[in-house]
């Protein structure tokens, strides 16, 4: 094979939560000298101009980047069109970047790389990488794109996909059961010895899976489906 998994991704298969993936993306940034790596959910664009970012990793000490959680992108933005509609990654020179990337801070000496990602079930994502123009020639671009795709593949399987799979895990079932007895997140957290954050992320996942909007509906649906008595 021409491409190899870079050494910095030895922990690739051990990553299970978002921070683990943050660490992997950070490793990529350090390894390839990137200033910024952002992973966007492109599924609603360009129908909606707001794009949610699933992961933002900044690898620059003097970061004065504006909030990247949700960015607004016009539907004629060439860079984002590449991410949404094309197959191969593209390298954008300094002028392109300044013209099209308005959400970020000072980009005057930055080269950009956009990487379109299309999943087998027809969902679309994209990487936006910012590289200092001075080092862009020294990077093996193909190796970089390959590495990003490797991490994304695991990110998709571990973080994105489970949210959309209608299978209730044993832990999630416990959360439903305790909710049905009127326990709050904090109380369930104490009972199960977990953090409220974890309980809330379980609950959010359950709501998505059962396609309901609040806890009352969640409990009702679970009883109707025979998940709990």
């Amino acid at each position: 094979m021409k491409y190899q998994k870079p050494d910095c991704l030895v922990d690739l298969d051990r990553a299970i939560n978002k921070l683990d993936f943050y660490r992997l993306f950070k490793c990529l940034c350090v390894n390839f000298d990137l200033d910024l790596l952002a992973l966007f959910d492109m599924n609603n664009w360009p129908e909606e101009t707001a794009i949610e970012s699933l992961m933002v990793v900044v690898n620059r000490e003097d970061s004065n980047l504006v909030d990247l959680d949700v960015v607004s992108i016009e539907n004629n933005n060439l860079i984002f069109q590449n991410m949404r509609d094309e197959m191969l990654h593209k390298v954008w020179n300094n002028q392109n970047v300044i013209e099209h990337i308005k959400f970020s801070g000072d980009m005057s000496s930055t080269t950009g790389i956009s990487i379109p990602l299309h999943t087998p079930n027809g969902r679309h994502f994209g990487f936006w990488l910012a590289v200092p123009t001075s080092v862009t020639d020294k990077i093996d671009h193909d190796q970089l794109v390959y590495s990003c795709k490797l991490v994304f593949q695991n990110f998709f399987n571990e973080i994105i996909l489970p949210d959309s799979m209608p299978i209730i895990s044993p832990r999630e079932l416990e959360v439903i059961r305790w909710s049905s007895e009127g326990k709050t997140s904090v109380e369930i957290a104490i009972i199960l010895g977990l953090s409220e954050h974890t309980i809330n992320s379980y609950t959010t996942k359950i709501l998505q899976k059962l396609q309901v909007v609040n806890r009352a509906q969640m409990v009702a649906t679970a009883i109707r489906m025979g998940l709990i008595k």
Partner: peptide, 30 residues
Amino acid sequence: GADFRIGKNELDRNAIGFIIDEFAKKDTKL
């Protein structure tokens, strides 16, 4: 019962910022 793990050598200001955003902010509460 832990929520995340991180190596001390990986811990820099950006990582701390990410952790606080992801785990410690109250507005992620349901």
